[in-house]
Amino acid sequence: MKDWKVLLVDDEKEFVMTLAERLGMRGIKVTTAFSGEEALGTMETYKPDVMILDLMMPGMSGLVVLGRVKRLYPEVEVILLTGTGSASEGVTGMDQGAFDYLTKPLQIDELINKIGMAVKKASSAD
């Protein structure tokens, strides 16, 4: 878990900062971004194993960010966060290359489990 590098992307700053602290307490290296544009900028110099990406953000939407990430950095696995009860957005994202999706509010153990599986997939592709 200590070697896992995660980029957490969501425009809800309080959510991002709190979740980042919780993941950090579990030994995960977390970098944060508050928009799709900022996330793509970060990735020019920092390559995470896994990106946790909110789907509904102002400016560049999560699905657009997902498309760019999968084109430019196919080795990075993306876990999508959806705010609605419907699974359709998450499934659409998986069709476009996302590793998986989770619905907010999150269960931390479930998130860590998914990050672990995504890291495993990312490292087996190396």
Partner: peptide
Amino acid sequence: TAAMTHEMKNVLAIISEAAGLAQD
């Protein structure tokens, strides 16, 4: 209503993470 439920989910997500952090 759909837009508002989305906003409320974000509110719950922050409450949930804050409570989780306190537990941690």
